[in-house]
Structure formats: C-alpha cells, structure tokens
C-alpha cells in the first residue's frame, strides 16, 4: 500500500513524548512505566492484545485520564494533568473505538461542531445571526465542505448520523476530528468492524491525511496487515507494559511480540 518499500524516516523532532507513565484504578494497573515518543509527521501505531492498555494510553494523552505517575510532553510543554478541552485547544483530536458522534445532528452539523474552537463570534452576534456570525459560519462551512469532499460523504450531508451505517459513521467521526485541524490525531481502532473494502478506503484516508495535511497520527488497530502497511513505527503494549518499540519490520521479528500474540510453548 505504501508507494515505496522501506521508507527512509528522517529523524524528525518529537511532537509528543510519554515518559514513565503509570495509571492505576485502585488496585488495577492499567499502565506501568510506559515511555515512548511520537515524532512530527509520522504514523505511530499502538498495538497489543485486548486489555493491554492501548485505549488507556490514548485517554492519558488527551486528558481523559490523569496518569498516576510520569508525565506527557506535548510540543515541548510538560504536563501531568490536563482537561480534554485544553488538549483540544492544544491541537489533539481523537476518534473513538465505539463511535462517539452527536447522533441527533446531521453530518454537516457534526463536522461543523468540530470547528467550534475556531469560531469566535460571541453571544451578541449569535443572537443576531445575520451579519458577522453568518459570515463566519459560511467561511467555516467552506472548510467543512472541503472535508466532506475529501471523505466522499457529500450524499449524506443532511442525514442525521444516527441513521448512517457504521462504516460511514466512522468516516464522519474522522471528518469531525479533521475539522479541528489537529496537529496530532488519535485514532482508536478506525477500522474495527469494517469489511475489506471499507478498510482500504479508511487506510487511504489515513495516508492522505498524513501526507497532504502533514498531520501526525497515532492509531490503535488490531488488523496487523493494516498496521504493518500504514505505520512508520509501532509500539507494542502487553498488560500495561511496553514490550517492543520500533519499525514494523523490527516489531514483527520481536520474540516478545510474537509470544504476546501467539502465546509461547510451555
């Protein structure tokens, strides 16, 4: 799927660094001393068996969970606690494993909502609507229409997203995240429950987003074929610990990873 084999990954600057992050819920240790980094412009996959702590990791990165120990540095800014809305303002967007769209709203409104942070006309102008507020809306509508074109969802523009099939909902959710023009895009199982064709479409969108918009992407995915083809580097978690980190080829050969996925003979 990659246009060329063995891509040369330049040593780019680090966008996000996770340092010794541990997360515990009471006695349950979701993450233990995990460290890795995400470089600007790369596609970084986080894989691991069920319950390895992948989603917990994403939740720490965008502020839903606060790590019990360790820190996360984003764009050179070190932090331990952050609200999700602050993460959004910092430029982190996210999709969910089980689609988290605004079900009562149309596709258009869902993606428009993704532009909320970029809209600044205050309450007074919103009350009047006509004039500056509508002008602002129209400007953002243009951006949203570009995203709709990009994702090829023109035909469902006005459909309430609750009525859409699952594959399209995933696409709308990606659109909403893209509308935020994020620097770091976190995708939690973007291809779960999709058929081969939908997976290929989604892979193409992810690659296009990465290459055309230069968005850094961190994704969790269970389909190993997809992970190996898409990602520049892979981090593998098992029982909340990092067991491997490197290029897909390196990770594929790693004994611990093979053991984690296939089991070991006792």
């Amino acid at each position: 799927m990659r246009p060329f084999e063995n891509p040369v990954i330049p040593q780019r600057e680090t966008l996000l660094a996770v340092e010794n992050v541990s997360l515990a819920f009471g006695g349950v240790k979701a993450l233990t001393d995990v460290s890795f980094d995400i470089r600007k412009g790369e596609i970084r996959a986080i894989i691991g068996p069920n319950g390895a702590g992948k989603t917990s990791m994403l939740n720490c990165i965008n502020g839903f969970y606060h790590p019990t120990h360790g820190s996360i540095t984003f764009k050179g800014e070190k932090r331990r606690r952050m609200r999700p809305s602050a993460a959004a303002r910092g430029g982190i967007a996210r999709t969910f494993q089980n689609v988290a769209l605004f079900k009562g709203m149309s596709t258009l409104d869902n993606i428009m909502t993704g532009r909320s942070l970029k809209m600044h006309k205050g309450f007074f102008w919103q009350m009047l609507r006509y004039g500056p507020a509508l002008k602002e809306e129209a400007g953002h509508r243009r951006v949203v229409e570009d995203i709709i074109d990009f994702l090829e969802i023109q035909h469902i523009r006005r459909t309430p997203v609750g009525k859409l099939p699952y594959g399209l909902q995933k696409r709308v959710e990606l659109g909403r995240a893209l509308a935020m023009e994020p620097e770091l895009l976190l995708l939690d199982e973007p291809m779960a429950g999709m058929n081969l064709e939908e997976k290929e479409d989604m892979s193409r969108f992810i690659l296009d987003v990465n290459q055309h918009f230069g968005t850094t992407i961190a994704l969790i995915e269970h389909d190993m074929g997809v992970v190996m083809d898409l990602s520049d580097r892979v981090v593998v978690l098992e029982y909340g610990r990092k067991i491997a980190d490197g290029t897909p080829q390196e990770v594929k050969r790693d004994e611990k990873v093979v053991a984690a996925y296939l089991g070991v003979a006792h």
Partner: peptide
C-alpha cells in the same frame, strides 16, 4: 442554528465527545 446551538446539542448527544473537541 449557530455555534452555540450546535455546542448545546453536542453536549446533549455525547458530552465526552463535545469536551474532546474543545467545548
């Protein structure tokens, strides 16, 4: 019909996702 109304409906439909996009 504007930004504020969409933010309200976003909070109604899925408050976690709303917070995530900066509301």
């Amino acid at each position: 019909h504007g930004r504020i109304g969409r933010a309200w409906m976003a909070v109604r439909d899925m408050d976690i996702a709303a917070e995530l996009i900066g509301i």
